[in-house]
Amino acid sequence: MTSSPCPPLSDEDWPDQLRDMREGFAGSLNVYRTMAHNPALLRAWSPLRQHVVRDSALGPERSEVVILRTAHRLGAPYEWAHHVSRARKLGFSDARIAALAGQPEGEDAPIASAVDALLDTHRLPAALEAELAAIIGRKGVIDLIATVGFYSILGYLVMSYSTPLDDDIAEELARTPLQPGPQP
């Protein structure tokens, strides 16, 4: 295994200028412990994270659909694993989660198509944007776009620096691996 030039920072190496953030979200996940190598970025990231993760017009379930599809499309196992765990806590079945790596159904389908369009063509086609606006509202569409961008950045970070999966998530998924369910 190659050693990362930017591993998650330990408590002992935590930057003084981020002392107030260590006990919150920033110190609890390896992705943010990796981002802490750039304290100004992590501090600036915090308010955007609050909106995208907690206050999005998408709500928690739709946000997970966007995040899981983005993680799958980026090939970001760290983000995928974390959000399999979060989606399960929200009541997603393993079949629904697995479908987000393939052909989801129902409301998940246009949301997944939007993620695909953003990653493939860097824009939403007008007809898809209108369909989404009718389902999730215009603020929801804008938050969907922002969520794809936000999690793309996190995916680039963890993949560039081979950020290890957090122990609790690794243990959870080892105990209860994703069961894909019936395939069409």
Score class of each variant (00 low, 15 high):
Phe25Tyr: 12
Ile142Met: 01
Ala81Ser: 08
Glu79Ser: 15
Glu172Pro: 00
Leu42Pro: 00
Trp14Arg: 13
Pro5Lys: 12
Pro47Val: 00
Pro39Tyr: 02
Arg54Gln: 03
Thr2Tyr: 10
Ala112His: 12
Ala130Asn: 04
Thr176Leu: 13
Asp166Ser: 08
Glu105Cys: 11
Pro5Glu: 13
Thr176Ser: 15
Ser56Thr: 15
Ile153Phe: 04
Ala36Leu: 09
Thr2Leu: 12
Asn38Thr: 13
Arg96Phe: 13
Ser63Pro: 01
Asp108Thr: 01
Leu29Gly: 02
Ser28Ile: 02
Val158Asp: 10
Arg88Asp: 06
Ile135Ser: 14
Glu23Ile: 06
Leu48Thr: 06
Thr147Ile: 12
Gly137His: 10
Lys89Asp: 04
Thr70His: 09
Ser4Met: 06
Pro125Cys: 05
Thr147Val: 10
Leu58Ser: 07
Leu173Lys: 02
Pro184Phe: 07
Gln17Pro: 09
Leu48Cys: 06
Val31Ile: 13
Ser46Gln: 08
Tyr78Met: 07
Ala174Phe: 02
Arg123Glu: 06
Gln103Asn: 14
Tyr32Arg: 03
Glu172Cys: 02
Val148Glu: 01
Gly137Leu: 09
Ala127Asn: 05
Leu128Ile: 10
Thr34Asn: 14
Phe25Lys: 05
Trp80Ala: 03
Gln183Val: 14
Pro110Tyr: 03
Ala133Asn: 12
Glu61Asn: 12
